[in-house]
Write a protein that binds this DNA or RNA. Sequence first.
DNA 1: AGAAAGATTAACGGAAGATTAATTAGGGCC
DNA 2: GGCCCTAATTAATCTTCCGTTAATCTTTCT
Lengths: 224, 224
Amino acid sequence: MKILIVEDEQRLATLLKKGFEENSFVVDLCFDGEEGLYMVETFPYDAVILDVMIPKIDGFTLLRTLREKQINVPILMLTAMGEVENRVKGLTSGADDYLPKPFDFTELLARLTAIIRRNKGGATSLLQIADLQLDINSKTVTRGGTQILLSAKEYAILEYMALNKNRVISRTEFSEHVYDMNFDLDSNIIDVYINRLRNKLDKKQTQKLIHTQRGSGYILKETE
Amino acid sequence: MKILIVEDEQRLATLLKKGFEENSFVVDLCFDGEEGLYMVETFPYDAVILDVMIPKIDGFTLLRTLREKQINVPILMLTAMGEVENRVKGLTSGADDYLPKPFDFTELLARLTAIIRRNKGGATSLLQIADLQLDINSKTVTRGGTQILLSAKEYAILEYMALNKNRVISRTEFSEHVYDMNFDLDSNIIDVYINRLRNKLDKKQTQKLIHTQRGSGYILKETE
DNA sequence: AGAAAGATTAACGGAAGATTAATTAGGGCC
DNA sequence: GGCCCTAATTAATCTTCCGTTAATCTTTCT
């Protein structure tokens, strides 16, 4: 999952980046509205965290601009003002959620995962593909009841496939959502991780869940 | 556990700060209602102690303002007036408890721990993880019946993990709840304390309770 | 058969964590 | 106020493990 944080307070920005990275997100940072606009137009983010009070273009204006351009990435707004009018203003301008400062990081994380999940069409935090289960909150994976231990990257790749099950994901799309902006396109790293995931969750199973679409990418689905 | 004390009498403020710190709290102090409002909006406290008679914004007004802003941190009010009407006024304005001056520090401590516990949903003061037991009131720890002596910070970190058992706690989250506002994000102090705790309570035990989640943080749990 | 795409494997290097020692801060006591 | 003891913190070093690279093997399609 890749997100963009637009926040000019250095300290808070760093804190948030670190916090999300600790929760297996890939995080790009920028510090004013202009940069923010550029980044959102250039890279496909799974969500954006947007402070209201930022230089050059303020949060509300940026939000409106994006929506006018039909860019419908989920957006969570932060504001220091803590007033009800702002909340209303934010939601009616097209923000998906709104969080007044101060907030508990856990709270922010919960809300952000919620709007991403909602956006991807799922309502629950439990993803199920045949007898494979992912719990997005605890980031745990089980197949047929037994737990499967995955590394951070392995999990990130599997989670992205699970959130987009029954759809072919290209290597490029993986790289855009699981890696940050300087990804080497000639690398075969996605193949390597697919292989590791297959060993951990499809090996010795009659029903394979990860399938290769030659020339296109990989797909996670239950039926042949 | 981190609390804020809003109290303009220097002497009392210092005394309270010291008292709570001796009981493993992290304490921020401020001296008038305006500052208080700012602090509560900026940092996530586990509870607030609020004197009624403070400069700029009085306690009741501050309390009401916070509640209107949907900031639901537990608040304990102090008043010098000692009249029944004030008690009623405080509780109906949304305070969680009320204590007339003069009071016994032990009494204040007991009430504060009570409202924090109530707020976190737990009713008991005994936390149990496998054969590890923490008594929140006496701040004593035992494993398999034998007592384990911990320093203040060691205890604070363990207590926070115990209150959130079976959930991964990131270093960022630790820093928010166990340290005050100027925490150095590059410090490895959490790692050092985890190491000490492991030496004191997991060493030479077959069942380890503190586990590392690489890239994320630490978790206290009984099962592998 | 040969080329292209994918699968597999081993190995390296670096980042994250563990550990330990050394320094600093603070509380208690006379 | 100064001394002592302990706790808190910093910093340096060691260890482990994961992300990545790259080389080789296998499959698939023309």
